[in-house]
Design a protein around this nucleic acid. Structure first.
Lengths: 351, 351
DNA sequence: TTGCGGTGAACAAACGATTGCCTTATGTTA
DNA sequence: TAACATAAGGCAATCGTTTGTTCACCGCAA
């Protein structure tokens, strides 16, 4: 049962405000040395820590941030969260995690709770292209940063990667390998990454002079199950693709499963490229060729931008956009996995 | 900028307390119908939501829980967290996530912050067998539940699985397949799961009359890298094991890598069994034979126990222990993967 | 006129900390 | 001796809610 200022004051026979000033090391405080040491001893002895709720009320800051994402069991978001926490914890913040499952209503409910709790800021990685929630945040004057996906005209603080470029790299890679019938497992057109990665895919195809075939683009959403279903549809085509650019690694993993169930070999019968380079990508067999983005950094940079916004009190719509990089593994080039170095060490001891 | 009671009271020309009672639907409130509708209209119009910080101070409850784990990028903990959130959100709680990386000092720091913030309860999944942090929580009278791992004499609220039984099942399975030289990638003896799974391994070996060979047990910790290193040591033995029981699935994945780098085939040259049945286990090639535990349920049950504890104000050291089940896949029996049904659907749309 | 019961709200005291401004001694200077 | 610094802390308001208690008024009966 934590101790309060009032109790300490009674025990030290001084006024609570005096204890408070000693605890906070008030620079302008003039106090007798003996009194100070008496109070300090008491503070140590009782391990006094000011009540964060009361402090939050008075100072109007809770030292709590929130991360809003679709689903933490998706490794992309797990890595993202670590980035945020690693950026926020050293500054004294702790982080609420909110899963929306991609459902706007849940996102709205979470944001309302967060606002009522007076969190100091929100990192939003589940936003839609047209998203009333973002306008609401802006209108509430809640500091926020969008991550990975952005919203509307791009007038919000944002950190992510150049999706058009990444998708172009991926598609060009497949084209360079001689593929012509290249399918795209596409994200929803309601989400920025979905739209931009399509754009990159189309751009690369057009640039290579490959006529667009609408049958080759199937909307899969961003997770495994959708990837498998979409892949099934593509493979049922009379003239199926020989290569696939999947909008995310999880979608690509779904495609792996669909291909395997039909007895197709990867990459010989079907080359696959993903997006994001989640840790899992390198562990698949064959390894998944994918577009690497610095996921952990997305999180830590977003946290820093958010804290800056909180401290200055200003919403500067800075946009940090990383250049993605193609990582070639065995899912597109047979034998690529053998050339890799053993593997880097993971970060943490855990069960 | 959210509105306050005082402002609303001024606009409705009544006292703040009256607005409060209307907003909270105070049953014992006698009020003129016209006044009530006037206030209700104002509440709706301004979308009034009471300041959670002030409310928390007054009511002494924050409606915030915390989950303390080693690392959210480990799929086990991601699934666990979802369980907690799914159990807590419907009751109006939100959840702080704290990663410790298995470092006691970080766990301590997080718990101190949480206590200062007056979170209503803590779910701790990173505890050690002897853990001062747990006694501290108890002493602070912070409601808490231990998950997966327990501490000391087992006098804490706990939800987990029967680790001895699970480990016995796993080892017996390998014995039943005819293996005699069965290695164990073991968890730390400072952690309950490490100790109990060793115990189950030893028990099964002894019961089968297989003499214990100390060389076959190597401490690996709970993550991939440790599993790979420990496996390397086992494979360097003059008389290496033909089968492995790994203390967790992540450790088993490390063993996959080590075996592959030596050109060993799984399961023909080396059979592997893991523990936990994380989603990833079924996606490996070959699929990982493992001990299934209901991870998501760990979380949701823990949340319910915690809420019960919070509501009743009593710390009842109830222990919920699930019986684990062996899931046989291709990493122990060649061909087992082919007999599986296509696969269940995942839960959520996401990127 | 006094008393009484009911309405419909206002009052005020918390919750625990922070912080600008006072107050009370004591010592110093004119 | 009056005036005045200075040291050492105390006072009280405030953050936004909640909730037990009190109050003013009205109508009505005695």
């Amino acid at each position: 049962m934590p101790v309060t200022l009032k109790e300490l004051a009674a025990r030290a026979n001084v006024h609570p405000s005096t204890v408070s000033r000693v605890a906070n090391n008030d620079p302008g405080l003039r106090i007798a040395a003996t009194t100070r040491t008496r109070i300090e001893a008491l503070l140590r002895e009782t391990e006094y820590r000011p009540n964060g709720v009361a402090r939050g009320l008075k100072l109007r800051q809770t030292l709590v941030l929130a991360v809003v994402i679709p689903d933490i069991t998706n490794p992309f978001f797990a890595a993202l969260f670590r980035g945020v926490e690693d950026g926020a914890t050293p500054r004294g913040y702790q982080v609420l995690l909110c899963n929306t499952d991609g459902i706007p209503e849940r996102q709205r409910a979470h944001l309302q709770s967060l606002s009522a709790r007076r969190v100091d800021g929100v990192i939003l990685a589940s936003t839609f292209l047209k998203d009333p929630a973002v306008r609401w945040l802006r209108h509430q004057r809640t500091p926020y940063v969008l991550v990975n996906r952005f919203s509307e005209e791009g007038v919000d603080p944002f950190v992510g990667s150049d999706d058009v470029m990444g998708a172009t790299l991926a598609t060009q890679h497949l084209i360079g390998l001689g593929h012509v019938r290249i399918g795209h497992l596409a994200g929803q057109p309601t989400i920025s990454t979905g739209v931009l990665r399509r754009k990159g895919y189309h751009a690369a195809m057009a640039e290579a002079g490959i006529p667009a075939d609408p049958d080759l683009l199937v909307e899969s959403g961003f997770v495994e199950e959708g990837g498998a279903q979409a892949m099934d549809r593509l493979l049922a085509l009379k003239n199926p693709p020989t290569a696939i650019f999947a909008v995310t690694d999880m979608t690509a993993i779904g495609a792996y499963g669909a291909a395997r169930r039909r007895g197709l070999r990867i990459p010989e019968d079907l080359a696959i490229v993903g997006y994001n380079d989640i840790p899992l990508a390198g562990r698949l067999i064959p390894g998944l060729t994918t577009v690497h983005v610095p996921i952990h950094e997305f999180g830590s940079v977003a946290a820093r931008m958010l804290l800056e916004q909180i401290e200055t009190g200003m919403l500067t719509p800075r946009r940090v956009v990383f250049a993605p990089q193609l990582v070639i593994r065995g899912s597109s080039c047979a034998g690529a996995d053998e050339q890799l170095v053993p593997r880097p060490a993971p970060r943490s001891p855990a069960e």
